[in-house]
């Protein structure tokens, strides 16, 4: 029942498929043509090499033959398009990535071609700082616009407490607790933490600047992985709490009155883009292991966490949410 509901919803969000596919194809082909055509159109007329890299002072300091200047960005674009189209988890970001990436590459290519116009030697090419700034700005704007336009319409707000419920007898208070830990993530956290601790011990004297470059990222990575290595979920009177890490901190909390529905669903790391705290087309997922996940929809967003016995947790949460909503 819950599984079927999940698939139906996914299908629903993919409905306007035709024009999206055509638009993506046209955009990918157009940008590709521009990337190849721009450097080749400058070729021959003004020299056999094009300036393709500029130093901080605005002087060109790197060059490529026109064919390479055409192929390199085209290859980057091709990889980006293939990745964005094939990677299911990136579905939500596809339009934004393709729009901003296309504008960025095309803008860079046009700036390069323009700077090389009327110069026989690549060392005399014009500076490109204005073009770079305009391109970056346009890419950011294009990305934002595409993201806003492609954002899926909010799923029709279903009646509160929808889904399987649990009958709670009068005079009984029910609490559902579940815990998942991933020992591999704990091991990764321990290993990265060990590097951060060992770095100052191995080196003699006070930590140097280069040593801090080692310590800080490893310590941050260790803490981040540790927080995602175990999770505790509690469904009770007030709502649902999801506590991360061995210390039970940070905590994400939803009031029962805010919960629209909850259900159990099977998810895999491949679907959501890996282990840990993932943001994907399926919403937020705290993925510690493949399999049963408790999915909560609250305040218009979906949140999932991989815990055992999610079906009963979802049923209890639904009845709590329903009881809250029905109360005058």
């Amino acid at each position: 029942m819950s599984e079927r509901g999940g698939r139906g919803e996914l299908r629903e969000t993919r409905a306007p498929r035709g024009w999206a596919t055509w638009g993506t194809t046209a955009w990918a082909a157009g940008i590709l043509a521009l990337l190849v055509a721009a450097p080749l159109s400058v070729r021959g007329a003004y020299g056999d090499r094009l300036a393709t890299h500029w130093g901080a002072s605005g002087e060109p300091d790197g060059s490529l033959p026109p064919w390479a200047a055409a192929v390199a960005p085209a290859a980057v674009w091709a990889v980006l398009v293939v990745a964005a189209v094939c990677w299911r988890a990136a579905r939500r970001w596809r339009a934004a990535v393709l729009a901003s990436g296309g504008v960025l590459l095309a803008g860079a290519q046009v700036s390069i071609a323009r700077a090389n116009l009327h110069h026989a030697d690549w060392r005399d090419a014009d500076p490109v700082s204005v073009g770079a700034v305009v391109t970056l700005f346009a890419a950011a704007v294009a990305g934002c616009v595409a993201w806003r336009v492609s954002r899926r319409p909010a799923a029709a707000s279903a009646s509160r407490g929808r889904g399987a419920r649990m009958e709670i007898p009068e005079g009984e208070r029910r609490v559902w607790l579940s815990r998942t830990a991933n020992p591999w993530l704990g091991l990764v956290a321990a290993a990265t933490g060990a590097v951060a601790v060992a770095a100052p011990l191995v080196g003699t004297g006070a930590p140097t600047a280069s040593m801090w470059l080692l310590i800080v990222p490893f310590a941050v990575a260790s803490a981040a992985v540790l927080v995602c290595s175990s999770v505790r979920v509690r469904v009770g009177g007030r709502g649902v709490d999801v506590a991360f890490g061995p210390l039970g901190w940070p905590v994400r909390r939803w009031d029962a009155a805010d919960v629209e529905w909850a259900r159990a669903e099977r998810r895999t790391p491949a679907q959501v883009g890996g282990w840990g705290y993932r943001l994907s087309g399926l919403g937020t997922t705290v993925m510690l292991r493949a399999g049963e996940c408790l999915v909560i929809r609250a305040r218009g967003k979906e949140f999932a966490v991989s815990v055992d016995d999610a079906e009963r947790g979802a049923a209890l949460l639904n009845s709590l949410a329903g009881a809250r909503a029905e109360r005058p």
Binding site: G171, E172, L177, D309, R312
Partner: peptide
């Protein structure tokens, strides 16, 4: 795990 607390009894 599911815990049932009987709040009706005294």
């Amino acid at each position: 795990m599911l815990l049932r607390l009987n709040i009706a009894d005294n």
